[in-house]
Design a binder for these strands. Structure first.
Length: 551
RNA sequence: GGCCCGUUGGUCAAGCGGCUAAGACACCGCCCUUUCACGGCGGAAACAGGAGUUCGAUUCUCCUACGGGUCACCA
């Protein structure tokens, strides 16, 4: 028996299978249509869902589904230190709120679905060890007994000498060349160890690969004996990535651009394991404007880094997705113009059309996208969404709307549904202010002030009270107002007024404004006729009388 | 510091050797209009800098500057 074979059995006495056997028996090639992508999103259960995570997972999910493929949600919990109790459910629920659906993997309650699992790394010890044993047997990996102290010594030395830090070259000699007997004794004595890659790389060596988003990338090859298995037998990200994405038959790895730097390690690992590397798509980070510069959105400094921010503010999930799509594929906006009412899921998303540079997150543009999304909703959809949102974030508003849904529906129906819908609401937390004048409970006592003389306003309103008759017809409603204009010294026709401004105190628009302010307290509102119909004659009269007393 | 990625109007961005350098958001003006919107029309606004390759560079190469990332028994 060769030494490496002996070593492999010593390190992994329970492993009898080879990687190939494992693959053949449990992880068969997927039966998918030509060109179908298998992608995955693989977060750590830190309990914090970053908007960049939504961006990356959206790219993975869209790319898979538009190609007729599969998208997997895998949990990377190989580091227990960063784990949080309900970390998994926060992430899964968070993504699901945004309409990102996975075909396989971990669900919110921690259960799993799919035939290529388990999908939680801490439950995948066995396959990792199968692959690791194979590497040891081939002489490509070895146990390292260096202590943390020894490692930091090495680091200091290297820093002083100005060479690349890391476990490589001459610094590995202690463990790389240990005899099998020595190792056996150390292990028998219970000495902790990690398993390291015996990297064949050399400083100055080059690797090339093709990134789906960035094209050709050339880098220095890996020459560090990176850790494959930590002392507790759990793999590092690098090794887990190789094993998982191979076994799960992932075709395209989408991940943050911060991983580009370690791609040479991964490529080398795939090569040494005799495996075909997947395609890589390194998606750009989402940036934030900061003193004229750009920087990565930070979880500490920027509230909008957490997706919970968008939920709390009341941005519809679709709006956030649409916005993200506009920065992911710039042709999305053109497509949207051609397909105004289609679901964004019909958009032919393409990874290779993503821009390689990090986009600034533009809240203003989000507002605009969101306003459009909401303007296309029906009153019923709006009410339902507002109810759902306010139940959690604005109890008072919720009670009010819920108490009289028919009225709420009437309110949300105003100026909605036509070919030119208003875009007054961009997020649900704006609804309260938008509809406040429909409810005495929400209305501010003082309304906005008009620049029309008080006595003229009084004349207008007093007169209007005598002619006001509720009507569904906007034309009738408006002709009533026109008809009374002359009597109070205002011009019923705007053009005529402009031709002879000296002849009148103002025009019909001014008259309407007075009524508007008296009834709603605002200078700007949607269709006033509709508003008055929602309020009803009694309330309108009451408001006008109240206003009359005030001025 | 080494290695890598990036740099077109305020922002997001088309462009892939020859264009008056698209479009969207924001901004300004006009039109429509009972207000505000919506919509329509129009305006201002950009290839980081320098060499080179070429008949011709936003586009290809190199250098510089700036921004970002990465160098763990973290992902």
């Amino acid at each position: 028996m060769t030494d490496t074979k002996r070593l492999a059995d010593l390190l992994f006495p329970d492993i009898k299978e080879t990687p190939q056997e494992l693959m053949d028996s449990c992880y068969p090639v997927r039966d998918l249509p030509q060109g179908a992508l298998v992608t995955r999103f693989a977060p750590s259960p830190t309990g914090f869902l970053h908007i960049g995570g939504v961006f990356a997972s959206m790219a993975a999910e869209r790319a898979a589904h538009i190609s007729g493929g599969i998208c997997i949600l895998r949990i990377e919990d190989t580091d227990k230190k960063r784990e949080m109790d309900d970390g998994v459910s926060i992430i899964v629920n968070g993504l699901s709120d945004f309409g990102i659906r996975f075909d396989e993997g971990v669900k919110a309650d921690g259960s799993e679905s799919g035939g290529y699992g388990p999908y939680i790394q801490s439950k995948r010890r066995y396959p990792y060890h199968v692959f690791c044993k194979d590497l040891v047997e081939k002489g490509l990996a070895y146990p390292c007994f260096c202590t943390a102290e020894r490692l930091s010594e090495i680091r200091e030395e290297q820093e002083k000498a100005g060479v690349t830090p890391g476990y490589w070259g001459e610094y590995t000699s202690a463990c790389r060349e240990r005899s099998i007997d020595e190792i056996e004794a150390l292990i028998a004595a219970g000495t902790p160890y990690v398993v390291r890659l015996r990297s064949p790389g050399k400083p100055g060596g080059r690797v090339k690969f093709r990134d789906v988003i960035r094209g050709e990338i050339e880098m220095e090859e890996n020459f560090v004996d990176v850790v494959l298995l930590k002392s507790d037998g759990i793999p590092t990200y690098h090794f887990a990535h190789i094993v998982d994405d191979t076994l799960m038959r992932v075709t395209t790895v989408t991940r943050g651009e911060e991983w580009i730097a370690s791609a040479p390690i991964h490529l080398q690992l795939f090569w040494l394991c005799g495996l075909k590397a997947p395609k890589y798509a390194h998606v750009p980070s989402i940036m934030k404007e900061d003193n004229g510069g750009k920087r990565k959105l930070s979880k500490r400094k920027d509230p909008e880094a957490a997706v919970s921010y968008f939920v709390e503010e009341g941005y519809p999930a679709d709006a956030v997705m649409e916005y993200l799509l506009t920065i992911a594929n710039s042709n999305f906006e053109d497509w949207r113009k051609q397909n105004k009412t289609a679901s964004y899921t019909a958009f032919p998303f393409a990874l290779n059309k993503m821009s390689p540079s990090g986009a600034l997150f533009d809240l203003i543009k989000l507002q605009s996208v969101s306003g459009t999304v909401i303007s296309l909703m029906t009153a019923e959809q709006v009410l339902e969404s507002v109810l759902e949102w306010s139940e959690r974030y604005d109890r008072e508003l919720f009670e009010l709307l819920n108490a009289d849904k028919a009225k709420a529906l009437q309110i949300f129906s105003i100026d909605r549904g036509g070919s030119k819908p208003r875009k007054d609401i961009a997020k649900w937390n704006e609804v309260r202010a938008y509809i406040s004048y429909f409810y005495d409970e929400l209305r501010q006592a003082e309304g906005e002030a008009l620049e029309i003389a008080a006595e003229d306003q009084k004349a207008i309103l007093t007169k209007y009270l005598t002619v006001y008759t509720p009507t569904e017809s906007k034309d009738e409603w408006f002709s009533d107002i026109k008809a009374m204009c002359e009597e109070v010294g205002f011009c019923p026709d705007v053009k005529a007024y402009k031709a002879d401004p000296a002849g009148y105190k103002g025009h019909v628009g001014d008259v309407s404004s007075v009524i508007r302010v008296a009834v709603t307290g605002r200078k700007n509102t949607p269709d006033l006729c509709a508003i008055m119909n929602v309020l009803g004659k009694d309330k309108v009269t009451e408001r006008i009388n109240e206003y009359l007393e005030r001025i």
